Simulated assay, not measured.
Amino acid sequence: MAIPKLKKENVIEAIKFIDKNGIPSQYQSNQYDLISEDNKKYPPKYVIAVANHIENKTEITTDSFKADEAKKALEKLGFRIENKHEKKYILTITADNATSTDESFSMNELGERGDKCIPLDVVFIRANGEEIRRKHRKGERRICNQTLPKLAFQEFEKQITALSVEEKESFPVSRYSLKDKPFCGIFSSVKEFKKHRNSIEYLIYHYGDGKQYVINSWNIFTTLIFVSCLSRSKKKFR
Rank of each mutant, 00 (worst) to 15 (best):
Y42D: 12
K20V: 09
R80F: 11
S106G: 11
K41Q: 15
K234D: 12
A127L: 04
R134V: 12
R142A: 15
K76G: 14
I204H: 00
N10K: 01
S36P: 04
S100P: 08
K194E: 08
M107K: 12
F79D: 02
K8P: 13
Y32H: 06
S189Q: 02
K235T: 06
K135Y: 14
T147S: 05
G129Y: 09
D19T: 07
K57F: 01
N145W: 10
G139Y: 11
F183K: 09
H196A: 15
F79G: 01
Q26I: 14
E157M: 06
K88N: 06
W218Y: 10
N216E: 00
I35T: 11
N83P: 01
V227L: 01
R142S: 14
A51T: 13
S104N: 14
R175G: 02
F17R: 07
F17M: 10
L74I: 14
S199I: 01
I118V: 14
E192I: 03
C144A: 07
L151T: 10
G185V: 00
F153A: 00
F193Q: 03
E55G: 09
S177I: 05
K158M: 05
R80A: 12
G208Q: 09
K7C: 09
I81W: 08
P44D: 06
D68R: 04
R175I: 14
S29F: 07
K116V: 08
F183N: 11
E166H: 04
F153N: 00
I118P: 02
S228C: 08
Q159G: 03
T222H: 03
K57V: 07
R142E: 11
L120K: 11
E59Y: 07
K195R: 06
S177P: 15
E55T: 15
V11K: 03
F221M: 08
K20T: 05
D180Y: 02
H196G: 05
N219H: 05
V50L: 05
S100T: 09
E130T: 13
V47D: 12
A14K: 09
L91H: 02
R113D: 11
E130C: 08
K211N: 13
Q26R: 15
Y176T: 14
Q154D: 08
V227S: 04
L230N: 07
A67V: 03
K191H: 10
K88W: 11
Y213E: 00
T94V: 04
A51H: 01
A98R: 01
